[in-house]
Design a protein around this nucleic acid. Structure first.
Length: 507
RNA sequence: GGCGCGUUGGUCAAUCGGCUAAGACGCCUCCCUUUCACGGAGGAAUGACGGGUUCGACUCCCGUACGUGCUACCA
């Protein structure tokens, strides 16, 4: 049987790290087995629907290089791939369940439900849920006569369809990561399958669509494990038990500090992104930073995520997509949740920047450089990149580490010069700047030679004037070799920076 | 509260009964570098706890603790 997996996001906002990792594992698994990976949009909740979220999710997939085989935009043999467009499909299955006695109509108002919960919260069974012990106290087709039920429905009374969970049976399922997991059905409540607005809930929709779309392996976050028995029962009641997918409940990605599931607020609080790409909330206008915009390479981002909760058992951590596909296996996925480590994420990005060729880096880093109002020529950029790439962790570092190649810097660390400044040094720099116009061979080596000679002539140690020169050219105590910098920025600019620094120090 | 799941250095983790417990990130020291990084060489740092089973347990079993998830007409 052909492997078919799906990722089924709700279009409610930014695409979270955990979501991307679930997509990744789906993708790796599908490709490893020569199967198919489909995207299905679970937009059954009208209240939480966010305009633009679906398109955003698809853009994130493209950026990550995790293209699905079937999706709402791409189409496919099981279209449509949006649950809102499949709305009419679900009703018949819900009705089938009612007919077979596995589900029932419920007419309770939100107030009635609230009262029931409040009352039962205090009694001996603290669960306070709509289940075998309380369903007979409520207004539903189990407590109402068939006529009354028909009448209420005919009158258009708002109602839902609930699954009738059996009493005292054990529901067991096999999870590919955790093995056998069992639940006492008495502790599971009669979840709503069809909402009053005619939309199915996740529980019904996921089972129906997974069956209809011939999904063989269902990957999802561990937070779904507690509701898995409902799904297992549904597969059984619908008569599809032999087609039920293998379950794969993935461990959660946790906050780096403290405990708990990583949330978008942790990113804001700790200063790192949790979304793949920038997400702008259309209502509030708030922008949440994405890994892409922070300067991550998609390959690094994906690699980092792949090994957060999975490894191939060797010491290798940096792996290409092809390697990930061939090595991936579910039995090497960890059971426990993993705390997200932004430092490690940056380390991966640094690794990928080092192994990316300069022309590609030029194209990738250009937007981050131009965002600062400069527009370097390609030739210049290509000279700068090899000089600074090994000190760049994020693409944005090509600006922070190389801005002085593109624009005259401010003397931010002037104090480091003035602390040990004297007339001899003034003389040295004045003469050196003047002598530069005579250099015919404008190379790093020639520049250093002339610098050394003059220092010796004037009686200064090279070390005394190296740092001042660096600050004059760079503005601070960092960057590649000073003479290499001078070579790249050219004679005119070098002379200009030394002379204006002299003026600024004197003033 | 109930139920589920989990627990190897600060973090990601290897180990599938023989351990003097890999490796990576981060941290510290030194080297390289008349800057800052990169790089190189070292270093500190680990089996939640208690019982079993076993010649032998980080590995298997039970309990406890802790953590976490769920407990909506949200997914």
């Amino acid at each position: 049987m052909k492997v078919r997996v799906r990722f089924a996001p709700s279009p409610t906002g930014g695409l979270h790290l955990g979501g991307v990792r679930t997509i990744l594992y789906n993708y790796l698994f599908a490709h490893h087995h020569g199967g198919e990976f489909v995207i299905r949009i679970e937009d059954t909740d009208r209240n939480r629907f966010v305009e633009g979220a679906e398109q955003y999710i698809m853009e994130c997939l493209t950026w990550c290089g995790l293209e699905p085989d079937e999706s709402p935009v791409k189409g496919g043999p099981f279209a449509p791939y949006r649950q809102s467009e499949r709305k009419d499909l679900y009703r018949q299955y819900a009705d089938q369940l009612v007919a077979s006695g596995h589900a029932y109509y419920a007419f309770d108002t939100p107030e009635e439900l609230e009262n029931m919960r409040k009352e039962h919260r205090k009694d001996e069974y603290s669960a306070a849920q709509y289940d075998s012990r309380t369903r007979l106290l409520m207004r539903n087709s189990l407590t109402l006569s068939a006529e009354e039920t028909q009448q209420l429905i005919a009158d258009g009374t708002p109602h839902v369809i609930r699954i009738k969970i059996p009493e005292n049976t054990t529901v067991t399922l096999t999870d590919m990561i955790r093995g056998e997991v069992s639940f006492d059905s008495s502790l599971v409540d009669d979840k709503v399958l069809m909402k009053a607005d005619g939309m199915p809930t996740y529980h019904l929709a996921v089972v129906v669509d997974d069956c209809l779309m011939e999904i063989t392996h269902a990957f999802r976050g561990e937070e779904w494990l507690p509701s898995a028995p409902i799904h297992v029962l549904l597969w059984e009641y619908l008569g599809w038990k032999d087609k039920m997918p293998q379950w794969v409940h993935l461990p959660l990605i946790l906050k780096p500090d403290g405990n708990g599931k990583l949330s978008k607020r942790d990113g804001d609080r700790l200063g790192f992104p949790v979304f793949a790409m920038n997400w702008t909330d259309p209502k509030t206008g708030d922008v949440n930073m994405g890994f892409k915009e922070m300067g991550f390479l998609p390959q690094a981002f994906v690699n980092m995520l792949a090994v957060l909760g999975w490894n191939d058992g060797t010491e290798q951590e940096v792996m290409s997509m092809d390697e990930l596909i061939s090595k991936f296996s579910i039995d090497r996925v960890h059971k426990g949740g993993a705390k997200f480590d932004f430092e490690k994420a940056k380390w991966f990005n640094h690794q990928y920047i080092q192994q990316t060729d300069d022309a590609t880096l030029a194209a990738l880093s250009r937007p981050f450089i131009e965002a600062n109002g400069v527009n370097p020529g390609e030739e210049l950029l290509l000279k700068v990149i090899p000089l600074i790439k090994d000190r760049c962790t994020l693409l944005s570092d090509f600006w922070t580490q190389g801005h002085f190649f593109f624009a005259t810097p401010e003397l931010k660390e002037k104090a480091a010069i003035t602390a040990k400044w004297n007339d001899t040094k003034v003389q040295f720099f004045t003469e050196w700047a003047a002598s530069l116009t005579n250099i015919t061979d404008w190379t790093e080596q020639a520049l250093e030679e002339s610098f050394n000679e003059l220092a010796a002539t004037i009686g200064l140690k090279k070390g005394e004037v190296m740092l001042p020169l660096r600050i004059m050219l760079v503005g601070g105590k960092y960057g590649p070799g000073v003479f290499a910098i001078a070579e790249v920025i050219g004679m005119e600019e070098t002379v200009k920076r030394v002379n204006s620094a002299l003026v600024e120090i004197a003033g």
